[in-house]
């Protein structure tokens, strides 16, 4: 059984994923993935469909079983913890869809975000979220199911922020948004969040935009990291497009024939 006596040193702040193998009972989807997100950093994980991005998210939030490897937050091994316990420990998560409580109002959604905090603190933090996302303030009594796509996403992020997480996972935050709105969410909000000291792990299908706002990037293919490096460098690589397209082709092959070939 892996314990925190492994490589996660006491200095490991933020999120660390080390050699994680995880899946749904059959062949593992993640085949030994490692990454680190330090406080104040935005780390992007990009890759084609089926690369294991969502599985990575689920492994970190605790809804997929990790068969080997460890996940630590702030140096504490959380690999065996329940989802609830992970969020209590500072893990914030904004799922790609169903990221708000549809039948609750904006205000109620935010207060649910602070469910595990004392009531007095929650009100302060909700005020903070409203100052961060002022467009939500006039909507506070509106039911979440009546929000627009962009408002909804801000609410989803805001809800996660009420708990003041040290690590924030964003699963394709721009998936259902217009290009302009995507830009605003990524370049303004996500970046600004990291600047407050949160470790942000951003999973994106819109690879270019994600590379532009992130500090570090992992290109995930077939459950493994294909390219990893500072986002600027990854973006500048001449072969990025081929890796990406090749990877996409490979992923399709791999899904039909087991054990995809190496490029």
């Amino acid at each position: 059984m892996p314990t925190s006596s492994g490589n996660a040193g006491p200095a490991a702040q933020g999120l660390e994923v080390a050699d994680v193998v995880a899946g749904y009972g059959g062949a593992p989807v993640l085949k030994g993935l490692s990454l680190t997100v330090s406080p104040g950093q935005v780390v992007a994980v990009v890759g084609p469909n089926g690369a294991g991005k969502s599985t990575l998210m689920r492994a970190i939030t605790g809804t997929v079983r990790i068969s080997s490897g460890i996940v630590t937050i702030g140096g504490v091994d959380i690999t065996k913890w329940s989802s609830e316990r992970r969020s209590r420990h500072g893990l914030g998560y904004v799922p790609q869809s169903r990221d708000v409580f549809d039948s609750l109002t904006v205000q109620e959604n935010l207060s649910m975000g602070g469910y595990m905090l004392p009531k007095r603190e929650v009100d302060d933090r909700i005020t903070n979220v409203f100052s961060l996302f002022p467009s939500l303030l006039p909507l506070r009594t509106r039911v979440a199911s009546k929000l627009s796509g962009g408002e909804r996403k801000l609410l989803g992020i805001g809800r996660a922020l009420v708990a003041t997480p040290t690590v924030l996972l964003l699963d394709e935050p721009t998936a259902s948004l217009s290009p302009e709105l995507s830009k605003v969410i990524l370049t303004e909000h996500v970046r600004r969040l990291a600047d407050t000291g949160v470790a942000v792990l951003l999973v994106e299908q819109k690879a270019l935009q994600a590379l532009e706002v992130s500090d570090w990037a992992h290109v995930l293919v077939g459950g493994e990291t294909r390219i990893s490096g500072p986002s600027g460098e990854v973006l500048a690589r001449r072969d990025i497009r081929e890796v990406f397209l090749g990877a996409a082709a490979l992923a399709i092959e791999a899904s039909t024939a087991e054990d995809g070939k190496r490029s």
């Binding site: 939030t61 809804t63 329940s82 989802s83 609830e84 969020s87 209590r88 998560y93 799922p95 169903r98 990221d99 708000v100 409580f101 549809d102 039948s103 609750l104 109620e108 207060s111 649910m112 975000g113 469910y115 595990m116 009531k119 809800r159 708990a163």
Partner: peptide, 21 residues
């Protein structure tokens, strides 16, 4: 809080858990 949490759990149990409920 409990009542709101019940409604939250009713609409979206996964999200409720990731809120620490």
């Amino acid at each position: 809080r409990l009542g709101q949490a019940m409604r939250a759990t009713a609409t979206n149990p996964d999200l409720a858990r990731s809120c620490g409920m």
